[in-house]
Amino acid sequence: MIHHFIRAALLAGFAFMIVYLFNSGQAVLYIAPRMELLVKLSALGLYAAAVYQIFAALRSKSKAGSSDHGTDCDCGHHHSKSPFKGTVMYGLFLLPLLTILLVPTSTLGSAMAEKKGISFTGSESVNRDAGAAERSNSDGAPDVIEQELDALFPYDEYTVDHAKLGKKLYGEELIIVPEKQFIETLTTLDLYRDALAGKEVEISGFVYREEEMGEDRIAVSRFAMNCCSADALPYGLVITWPKAEQYNEDEWIKVKGELTVIEYDGNSIISLQASKIERIAAPSTPYVYPDFEFGT
């Protein structure tokens, strides 16, 4: 019977943990929005299981210890035989509840970015040198301006959406790297760096620093999450600013600057020649998410 009560407590604990995470707005730190509904539903499931355990506990009490699914049952579940094992097992279930309560909440930042390896060139899912090779101009651009744009933004079937975004950005006075299409915009900037070089770009994120950057460079970075924190990957844009060393790692900043191409760590990458930096408050949603509607 005590088994049932411990289990009920643990299950309810998990259910309330999920509710607590959502209510306090912390859930976004652990899982992506598209998982939210499923996780909320699982809280309901856990809660239902907890209620069932209490029901089972009371029933087994009224039957004086002879539950219909007790230790004598031979259906392959491992009813733990030793008290030590049982304690260890319940301790294991207690662990996530404890870490949530005891460990101060944080967001993925520089320390994890260093471990996971940051990308300074947007997404790797597009083929960088395919653009110029096979240009599909079959739809026949009607006027001269369109033809010029097509020449500046060559594309193949996989980068057609990036080319479209590139053309749109080309016409803008200030390119703001938005939260919604953070990776897609960075990838476009990188793909069409020649056409977009010299443009004014604005980006915000946390400060990330590598040793090779020296005193005048930092990266403005965001973590992109697909499902949960375990699959989040960092993306960043290197900026150059004479007093870059003033900014601490994991501080949130907004940078405006001119898009240039620099040599960094043996690669040529896009970067901003910063003209304005300001410290900002960390956003309530620190991560960005791939835009699944991009191009559709």
């Binding site: 652990y30 996530p96 870490t99 949530i100 460990v103 944080s106 994890m112 471990k115 924190s229």
Partner: peptide
């Protein structure tokens, strides 16, 4: 970081 990943994996 450990806590973020641990809880993230579990929730998912």
């Amino acid at each position: 970081s450990f806590n973020l990943l641990f809880i993230g994996i579990l929730l998912e």
